[in-house]
């Protein structure tokens, strides 16, 4: 039985999200900014509304307010209480529970020692360095002995050395306290370093879950493609063709793709930066489609082009140098080509 199970969790950001996390697992949720990672954590913590169900050890916790869920939460900006000393920050969760002063002191001491911040107990948060704040925030979340620890980009503001050090400490803490962790990041290296498994998230959905090696084997070029939106389409198998390839039908598209033994032929994932757009018919014949430009957005230095192939919508992204703004007119007919190796079948 999974320790944490999310079933069809849906709200203003999340779309029918499903995920299982094992006991004492560190699950890294990897996605670009805006993918819905923080909202996912807040839903689990009970801080935003959602429909669907979140279960902990088989029991739904949807009706519990945040204070009853016993989930440790470390938000991205850490949110230490500026008016309390480090020690009082950490002790807060225990004092609320009405523990005796001695029990509070002992537990706080233990957790501070675990994170190596005993010497900071009389300092105020604003006087701490980035790494020290990080540790204090993690200690504060751990002190209530949560079954689940939610970490929102906890290491993104630290230098590499400090990052590796705190990563190692988080693993040690997992062993020592037996706590399950969900760890949200947009950094592939962090996800690989710390995650037992990686859940790739985009547009409010979990696209795929697996170890780093498994994700590589699925030919998801997560290292570069995670920064772009993904096209996720329902698909069905048409036929297997020689050389380990398959022909699949995804609504109006018939795609040639590679597959694995484990592929269930339910969905295909195509990173939008691998949907190549051109004005002349490409010389390659495979996975080429005629499409119409529906919408063009310029996001920083990236064009986000929405295309339709008959009724099917696809997203294509390209850097600003590739096209003149005048070339990408809404309603214009173009060709798109998708290399076989970037069509991932799940």
């Amino acid at each position: 039985m999974p320790h944490i199970a999310l079933r069809n969790v849906t709200n203003f950001i999340l779309k029918n999200l499903n995920m299982d996390i094992l006991d004492q697992e560190i699950m890294a949720v990897l996605g670009r900014s805006g993918a819905g990672k923080t909202t996912l954590l807040k839903a689990i913590a009970g801080l935003v509304e959602y429909s669907g169900s979140i279960m902990m050890d088989g029991k739904p916790i949807d009706d519990l307010p945040p204070e009853k869920r016993n989930v440790g939460y470390v938000p991205q900006n850490l949110a230490l209480f500026p008016h309390m000393k480090v020690e009082d920050n950490i002790a807060y969760g225990l004092k609320i529970r009405g523990l005796s002063e001695r029990a509070v002191k002992e537990r706080v001491r233990y957790v501070m020692d675990l994170l190596d911040i005993l010497h900071l107990r009389d300092r105020y948060p604003l006087t701490l360095s980035g790494g020290e704040r990080q540790r204090a925030a993690i200690a504060r979340a751990l002190v209530i002995d949560p079954k689940l620890l939610l970490l929102d980009e906890p290491l993104s503001n630290l230098n590499v050395g400090l990052r590796l050090q705190i990563s190692a400490e988080l693993k040690k803490i997992r062993r020592e306290l037996g706590v399950t962790m969900i760890y949200v990041t947009h950094n592939v290296d962090e996800a690989r370093e710390l995650g037992d498994r990686i859940a790739v998230m985009d547009d409010g959905k979990i696209i795929t879950v697996g170890s780093y090696e498994e994700l590589l084997a699925k030919r998801m070029n997560i290292l570069s493609d995670i920064l772009y939106p993904h096209n996720v389409l329902k698909c069905s198998l048409i036929e297997k063709i020689p050389e380990g390839l398959v022909k699949v039908r995804c609504r109006d598209l018939t795609l040639i793709a590679t597959f694995e033994d484990r592929s269930r032929f339910s969905k295909v994932v195509i990173p939008s930066n691998r949907v190549y757009l051109s004005f002349e018919k490409p010389r390659i014949r495979v996975n080429v489609f005629k499409a119409k430009i529906i919408d063009v957005k310029l996001n920083r230095n990236i064009y986000e082009v929405t295309l339709s192939v008959n009724e099917t919508l696809l997203k294509s992204t390209a850097s600003i140098e590739r096209f003149n703004p005048s070339e990408l007119k809404i309603g214009k007919s173009v060709y798109i080509q998708i290399p076989i190796r970037y069509v991932t079948i799940l």
Binding site: A45, Y73, G93
Partner: peptide
């Protein structure tokens, strides 16, 4: 006031009244 500070206090076990008394008013 940073909303996340109030949210963290909730996850630590504080109900709304406690958040007001312990976190919001002192800040």
């Amino acid at each position: 006031i940073d909303k996340e500070i109030l949210e963290v206090a909730r996850t630590l076990g504080a109900d709304r009244k406690r958040v007001l008394r312990d976190i919001l008013l002192p800040q």
